[in-house]
């Protein structure tokens, strides 16, 4: 049975230096996990302001997994890995 998809969204804004680092971190962790069912999307808060607010974003970077805000600041690689694995097992 194939795994269900996991959606990871990184909320960023132009001029946010940590956002780029957060994106790189997520990409590195995903490469390491080598899970093809994970979708990564970068959300520009300027473009999707209402969506960001509804999800609870109060600052950038923010990381949501499957539509739930999980990190409100830059996570460690380990914390990110755990959060992704937790969602994998929930699927």
């Amino acid at each position: 049975m194939p795994d269900s998809n996991i959606d990871i969204e990184i909320f960023s804004v132009p001029g946010c230096h940590k956002c780029g680092k957060a994106f790189q971190l997520v990409e590195a962790v995903l490469k390491e996990l080598d899970n093809k069912t994970i979708n990564l999307r970068r959300v520009d808060v300027v473009d999707e302001f209402d969506y960001a607010v509804a999800l609870g974003i109060r600052a950038t970077p923010g990381i949501a997994i499957n539509g739930v805000l999980v990190f409100t600041t830059m996570p460690s690689a380990e914390a990110l890995r755990k959060a992704i694995c937790h969602n994998e097992h929930q699927e």
Binding site: V13, P14, G15, C16, D44, V45, V46, D47, F49, A52, V53, G56, I57, R58, A59, T60
Partner: peptide, 30 residues
């Protein structure tokens, strides 16, 4: 509550940037 959350995000985005307020500029552009 929604307005408070919107303003909190705006405030944080503006104070977190060294290059002005990117979100306000972005909204103005749009």
């Amino acid at each position: 509550t929604t307005l408070r959350n919107e303003l909190a995000l705006l405030v944080n985005l503006c104070t977190g940037s060294e290059d002005g307020c990117p979100i306000i500029e972005g909204i103005e552009e749009s």
